[in-house]
Design a protein around this nucleic acid. Structure first.
Length: 271
DNA sequence: CTTTACGCCTGACGGC
DNA sequence: TGCCGTCAGGCGTAAA
């Protein structure tokens, strides 16, 4: 499941092969993604150089002179770099053929992802304009989270997964960071003390850093650009570990649905 | 304004 | 063996 570490791992892998290469052709086999693949995409980017491969939140940004291709991996998206001529398989929806004889192939069984062309500044697109800070931005700190949480009754777990508060924290890493910082996921955001938000920020940054270093977490669909899985799954302390013992205190890890999402926690270590 | 529910989509899995 | 219901979940939208 691609969250920020998986998207960042993908960005780092494709960057050296994509930056400064020229798009030779675009093949769209399935237009129906999260948003329809831009009609006339080939016309817009054929012959154009990919100037930069960036990331904002969970969107990969292939920046061209006149606009940006915003790729989102959704729930089951994968990107691979292949030599020209490898026949497409099931769910291989979009290819960008590059003049360096490489193909960037977008594969996404569940089609929650997107390949979206935006003209001009992507940060002003509806997808990115209203997002909160990156988790590694200095603007993201305990003070800021605490201030944003004033008057909020929603669960702290939903609060940190809200992209307007901070981006890139999906279900897996929200559970892990709350465990590491000893906060119950169902606690109201407005009822978490400042010093505990400072600990939570540190825990989010730690868990994301470690996951990026491990190449992400492979649970169901995700794989790195090389096809290799991510190795962070072994480091998960609570996610999908209901019924197993807590790594700290041996209490049984519990599972509870909070805000329609599975949440995992230790009722002894987290308060 | 905040909060909640829902839909998009396929594959895996359990029950019968 | 096969069919069917349920679940997984990012995230935008609509409704409360």
């Amino acid at each position: 499941m691609p969250e920020l570490p998986e998207v960042e791992t993908t960005r780092r892998a494709i960057k050296p092969l994509l930056e400064h290469s020229i798009v030779q052709a675009v093949n769209v086999r399935q237009r129906k993604l999260r948003w329809p693949v831009t009609h006339g995409l080939a016309r817009r980017i054929r012959g154009e150089e990919i100037l930069k491969v960036a990331r904002r939140a969970k969107y990969l940004l292939l920046i061209f002179r006149h606009g940006t291709l915003m790729i989102h991996l959704g729930m089951s998206g994968r990107l691979r770099i292949l030599p020209v001529g490898v026949p497409p398989g099931k769910h291989d929806h979009v290819d960008l053929v590059l003049t360096n004889r490489r193909v960037l192939r977008f594969h996404d069984p569940r089609r929650f992802g997107s390949v979206l062309w935006v003209r001009g500044d992507p940060l002003r697109s509806p997808q990115l304009a209203h997002l909160g800070p990156e988790p590694f931005d200095e603007a993201f700190c305990g003070q800021m989270l605490f201030a944003a949480a004033r008057g909020r009754r929603a669960a702290v777990k939903n609060f940190i997964m809200d992209g307007r508060i901070v981006v890139g924290v999906g279900n897996i890493y929200a559970n892990e960071a709350l465990f590491r910082s000893g906060i119950l996921p169902g606690r109201s955001a407005g009822r978490v003390a400042l010093h505990r938000y400072q600990g939570l920020v540190a825990a989010i940054q730690e868990v994301l850093t470690e996951a990026i270093e491990a190449g992400g977490t492979t649970l169901r669909d995700y794989a790195q650009v090389t096809g290799e899985p991510g190795y962070f799954e072994q480091a998960l302390q609570v996610y999908e570990r209901a019924g197993e013992p807590c790594v700290n205190c041996n209490s049984v890890i519990r599972r509870k649905v909070i805000g329609q999402r599975a949440s995992y926690y230790c009722a002894n270590c987290q308060r």
